[in-house]
């Protein structure tokens, strides 16, 4: 089967610091795949490289066979051309506006008399021609180059931002919970659904019929997700008022709201008590049963060994082992680096 996610020789460098070096692994669809390692092994950095928060310094991350990034296509062309045209007109106007105004408006309008639009506008051409290349076309050219160039450079820089990656089908949670605290629990889930919803600015402003239809559907689905993680009764509360364990669950519901094919969980059991941990293990299994592949960073060995199909072990940014839980359990390098015998129980 084709892997859903391929991390191919990814290296992350920050200045002189190497957070990941040549890390590779592949996740098959339907798996729960765990990345483990001591603190500072570079797990979260790897997550950030996968989700587009950082760009890998070397290597690539392929999702369903290809690297996620904005495609070169008509949208890009439209954007660059549009910006170029607008800034060309704007710069030329900025230089010539006073003379144009005098020639078109002031010269053709006498107070209280009718204004001949056609004749007035036809006065614009000569002014621009008379101003000559230096004042008419040069600003336009510079404007077009700067505007179009900037649009292209910005596009290039933002080719693989987190929102692009998320819309392609990878959702994530955060190690240090990053809910929208002032928003209600329900709203948090609805925000997660953002990319799946369609209503645009005008529809929302004017409350056109499409708005109501979508509001109804999105709310139903959000409530269904809240039910799935067991937060149904807390829907109207402010997210920051939830207890810690429930906040983690809300993060999962919010990530699931975008109907991802791959879900990245960054230490979902951190700060949970043993009961909550057991429940979380069950939740991860249920997520897999929904057909979502899970990539997991975790410290709790019980969770990792309980749900993972395969495990990758990182230490000091490098992969030191990869395999099934049984293989990892017996891998001497892992035991030495990280696990410790008594923890395996």
């Amino acid at each position: 089967m084709a892997p859903i996610l391929e991390v191919d020789r990814v290296t992350m460098r920050f200045g002189g610091l190497v957070a990941n070096e040549d890390v590779s692994f592949r996740v098959e669809p339907g798996q729960v795949y765990a990345v483990i390692g001591p603190n500072g092994a570079g797990k979260t950095t790897l997550f950030n490289a996968i989700t587009g928060v950082y760009q890998p310094s070397a290597g690539e991350v392929r999702f369903e066979g290809s690297v996620i990034r904005k495609r070169v296509g008509p949208r890009l062309a439209l954007r660059v051309l549009g910006t170029a045209v607008v800034s060309a007109i704007a710069s030329s106007l900025a230089v010539n506006i006073l003379s144009l105004w005098k020639a078109v408006v002031v010269a053709n309008y006498a107070y209280g008399e009718p204004f001949a639009w056609g004749k007035a506008l036809s006065c614009a051409g000569p002014v621009l021609r008379e101003a000559g290349a230096a004042w008419t076309w040069l600003p336009a050219l510079i404007g077009a180059l700067v505007g179009g160039g900037a649009a292209f450079v910005l596009w290039l820089r933002r080719r693989r931002t987190p929102d692009v990656v998320q819309r392609a089908g990878i959702a994530r949670t955060f190690q240090n919970i990053r809910l929208f605290g002032e928003l209600s629990v329900l709203e948090n889930v609805l925000v997660g659904m953002h990319a799946r919803l369609r209503t645009g600015f005008l529809e929302n402003l004017l409350r056109l019929p499409s708005f109501f239809g979508e509001r109804h559907r999105s709310r139903d689905r959000a409530m269904e997700l809240l039910r799935f993680v067991g937060l149904e009764s807390r829907a109207p509360d402010a997210a920051r008022n939830l207890p810690y364990g429930l906040q983690r669950r809300l993060e999962i519901a919010r990530a699931l709201a975008s109907s991802p094919r791959l879900l990245l969980l960054d230490e979902p059991a951190a700060g949970m008590n043993p009961t909550e941990t057991v429940a979380l293990t069950g939740l991860i299994r249920q997520i897999r049963e929904r057909g979502v592949t899970v990539l997991l960073i975790e410290h709790h060995m019980r969770v990792v060994m309980g749900v993972s199909d395969r495990i990758c072990v990182l230490n000091f940014g490098k992969r030191i082992a990869e395999g099934t839980p049984e293989q990892i359990r017996s891998d001497p390098a892992c035991i030495e680096a990280y696990l410790g015998k008594e923890e395996l129980g």
């Binding site: 929102d163 990053r178 708005f211």
Partner: peptide, 24 residues
């Protein structure tokens, strides 16, 4: 609405919002 929720999300946490598929 969807528009306003995106605004609020960007206000609360721009990076998290962007990881939720909102282009900030």
């Amino acid at each position: 609405s969807r528009t306003g929720r995106a605004w609020l999300a960007v206000r609360e946490d721009e990076l998290a919002a962007s990881c939720m598929g909102i282009a900030p």
